[in-house]
Design a protein around this nucleic acid. Structure first.
Length: 391
DNA sequence: TCTGGGGTCCTAGGACCC
DNA sequence: TCTGGGGTCCTAGGACCC
């Protein structure tokens, strides 16, 4: 999809069409999640601080992100894609690979398939999409980047190297700033130059696995098939605070709140994990992680909180200012096991069920850990509109 | 420019086991 | 006794992606 979040916002508010639009966090530490092409022309791009985006493009309309809505529209697009072939691999919220080799008897050529898919997304969802067509996944992805915005590009079979070799190495999927710098030190700027570099030189710079992978990509070799059943490997939540946390009490309260959110995510995903990881980013942006693996998977908030607090002790935060806290679970249990355990826990866990029902009916804020509830008699409102229930 | 939130994968060292 | 080879798992950090 092209500038996906922006286009979803334009569906809701057609007045945004034709204008510079920036979707991003409203807080003092917000960054750009998506920028319209009008804003990009003014030098605004993803991950840029919103403050800087505003400076570069004062006329842009700033819109706070609505991830739940983007997920819904993403599902609508998925439905359209699956009407063409079941071989759809969702790569992110706004990208997918399709294996369309089975459609060759239904269309004159692959470009006709691409045009049909673009038209279907336009008609049924109402937003633009770009499509790249090639014999391998990574070249198709690269072609789709070159096709943007609102276009289609096919790299013909046999023409892969002619397409690839003039491009800068940073265009390769998996080459970021660090690898680009290492390759530059070897005098490698284009994919063609990468293909011509001796393997041993590459390995010494970037490690064996990355060297082998990139050398293959530079030769157009990518045997990875389209995979339809991709299962999550971890689930996490994190938050950057508008103002750094400085007291142990404030840190614990935010961490408890994150554990609560994570428990809800795990429950809705009907999964649980064996490893709990804590992430702490300090004011100077140094970031540490602490993790622990248990024999049994966990998912409930009290257990997450207990592990999180132990990890927090191990993190030795001391008196340092904390900019971000995160908590996550990995080593998720396999689907068959998860279903079995989910059945068992549903039978046992009437309290959590009731809590989930309350939240479904009255919103996430209706039920919170007692520690996070407003203190009775505390400053401000005499009456509490949304009292937190103790649990 | 003062740097989000949600992910995946890889590396390296160490514990541990046979 | 001063020390092998192969393997798995765990932890911490980092690169990278959208």
């Amino acid at each position: 999809m092209d500038a996906f979040y922006v286009e979803v916002e334009r569906l809701r508010d057609p007045g945004l069409r034709g204008r510079a639009v920036v979707v991003g966090g409203a807080g003092p530490r917000g960054v750009v999640a998506a920028a319209s092409y009008e804003a990009r022309r003014r030098g605004v791009h993803s991950a840029m601080p919103m403050v800087e985006a505003r400076r570069r493009c004062p006329s842009a309309v700033a819109v706070p992100p609505d991830h739940a809505r983007y997920a819904e529209v993403s599902d609508e697009v998925s439905t359209v894609l699956r009407s063409f072939t079941p071989l759809v691999e969702a790569l992110s919220i706004d990208e997918a690979f399709l294996d369309v080799s089975g459609l060759r008897h239904h269309y004159t050529d692959t470009e006709a398939v691409g045009h049909a898919i673009r038209a279907a997304i336009r008609d049924q969802v109402g937003i633009p999409a770009s499509i790249g067509i090639a014999s391998t996944k990574f070249i198709a992805k690269l072609a789709s980047e070159k096709a943007k915005p609102d276009g289609l590009l096919r790299v013909p079979y046999g023409g892969e190297l002619a397409f690839l070799h003039p491009l800068p190495v940073a265009d390769l999927w998996g080459v970021g700033e660090a690898t680009r710098a290492e390759l530059e030190a070897l005098g490698v700027a284009t994919i063609g130059e990468l293909a011509a570099t001796p393997r041993a030189m590459l390995e010494a710079r970037i490690g064996a696995a990355a060297a082998a992978h990139l050398a293959d990509l530079a030769m157009g070799i990518d045997p990875r098939p389209v995979v339809t059943d991709t299962q999550a490997r971890s689930i996490s939540v994190e938050e950057t605070f508008p103002v750094d946390l400085t007291t142990r009490d404030a840190i614990e309260r935010e961490l408890l709140s994150l554990c609560d959110r994570l428990a809800g995510r795990l429950r809705r995903a009907d999964t649980m994990g064996r490893t709990v990881s804590l992430k702490v980013r300090f004011a100077d942006f140094t970031t540490i992680t602490r993790s622990v693996s248990r024999r049994d998977a966990l998912w409930r908030r009290p257990e997450l909180w207990e592990e999180a607090r132990t990890l927090l002790d191990r993190a030795r935060v001391g008196g340092r200012s904390v900019r971000l806290l995160g908590i996550g679970v990995s080593h998720l249990v396999g689907s068959g096991v998860a279903e079995q355990l989910a059945m068992e826990r549903r039978a046992v866990d009437a309290v959590a069920d009731a809590a989930e029902e309350v939240r479904r009916r009255f919103g996430d804020g209706a039920l919170i850990p007692a520690r996070l509830a407003p203190r009775p008699g505390a400053t401000g409102t005499g009456t509490q509109d949304t009292p937190g229930m103790a649990d």
